[in-house]
């Protein structure tokens, strides 16, 4: 951990500390609406880190991360509504559930040498399969959805992940910061190097003694587990779950936006992407509401166009470019 910190250039250290301080102090000045936007920023930064681990570092394109998000969300909320098991315990059941799903997808894909586009399609297929399954799963309310009651005893207490926006704000902040630290640490770990090797050239990686199947499976395990935690947050923050929303391919695409815009395979890319994208999308919605235009698709059109523009003009993302401009990138020794 100390090693990571020391590797940052001085300006980077200042910048990180200032950003963290600002994030901690933000609730003093931010109103409820701004806070809700910031919650989304951290939430997407967090999920982006999880996905980026698999795609950006290990080079495996998953377009079905909604599967792990949904499984995490459904496991924890169902445990709460059905058995009264609180989310702080539920999360430790949600993680293995999603991780097991990830292992199945990874095992099927990589054992049978399903790669690239095919692998991406396999991940979509699993997410869709599960979505339809949950649409018919009576115990979690099927397609009519699963709702967290606000009236049951103790549901508004922090230990049950209930309460005001401040709770969710700091929780999302901690998740995003912890995920960033974890990713930064993994990047400099032997595992991180192995992932990069697998991403760059699997055959050469094998010749360097790397068990590529194992490396990919570990990436999937961590990525799916992290995403499941995000799902628990999602479930208790929104307090209602519909299979058609949480398992939707649109949800998977939402997850991949921030790291792609910010910069695939970089530690700060997902954060930068989330900071750029979420407020833009939100202000677009606000602006349209202000002018009385009620168009559900407009925000998605904006996201779609942004994806196309970024991938055409700046496929390595905004962060590498921005870091150079601000003199924050690591000096090349």
């Amino acid at each position: 951990m100390r090693d990571i910190w020391q590797r940052l250039p001085t300006r980077g250290k200042t910048f990180c500390l200032a950003a963290l301080a600002a994030a901690i102090a933000a609730p003093l000045v931010a109103d409820r609406y701004l806070l809700s936007v910031l919650i989304l920023v951290f939430y997407f930064a967090y999920l982006g880190q999880a996905w980026n681990l698999l795609m950006g570092f290990a080079g495996q394109l998953s377009l079905g991360h909604a599967l792990y998000l949904g499984l995490g969300a459904y496991t924890a909320t169902a445990l709460w509504t059905l058995f009264g098991i609180g989310p702080w315990i539920g999360v430790f059941i949600a993680i293995p559930v999603a991780a097991a799903a990830g292992m199945i997808v990874g095992w099927l894909g990589w054992r049978f040498a399903i790669e690239g586009v095919y692998f991406a399609l396999l991940t979509i297929a699993f997410a869709e399969f599960t979505r339809i399954g949950f649409d018919h799963l009576q115990i979690t309310g099927a397609s009519a959805g699963l709702f967290l009651s606000v009236n049951s005893p103790g549901s508004d207490k922090w230990w049950n992940l209930g309460g005001g926006p401040l709770l969710y704000y700091y929780l999302a902040l901690i998740l995003a910061a912890a995920a960033t630290l974890l990713v930064a640490w993994l990047r400099r770990s032997p595992l991180g190097y192995r992932w990069l090797a697998v991403r760059e050239d699997p055959e050469a990686a094998q010749a360097a003694g790397i068990d590529i199947f194992r490396a990919k499976m570990i990436a999937m395990l961590i990525s799916a587990s992290m995403t499941a935690v995000g799902g628990v947050f999602y479930g208790f923050y929104y307090r209602n779950l519909f299979p058609s929303q949480v398992f939707d391919i649109g949800r998977s695409i939402e997850i991949i936006m921030a790291p792609i815009i910010g910069g695939l395979g970089t530690v700060f890319g997902p954060i930068v992407g989330a900071i750029l994208l979420t407020p833009l999308g939100e202000s677009l919605t606000a602006l349209m509401q202000h002018f009385g235009i009620n168009t559900p698709g407009a925000k998605s059109i904006f996201y779609g166009l942004t994806l196309m523009v970024i991938i055409t003009l700046q496929p390595s993302g905004v962060w590498p470019w921005l870091a150079r401009k601000l003199g924050l990138d690591r000096p090349r020794a």
Binding site: L61, A120, G250, G297, G304, L305
Partner: peptide, 28 residues
């Protein structure tokens, strides 16, 4: 055209973006 020789995931993302624009355009 500029994407034909680019990485697979970049092609995919371009077309995912296009798909999102088209489907929401229809919705609009």
């Amino acid at each position: 055209e500029p994407f034909v020789s680019r990485a697979e995931h970049e092609q995919f993302i371009l077309l995912v973006g296009l798909a999102t624009v088209v489907v929401n355009g229809l919705l609009l």
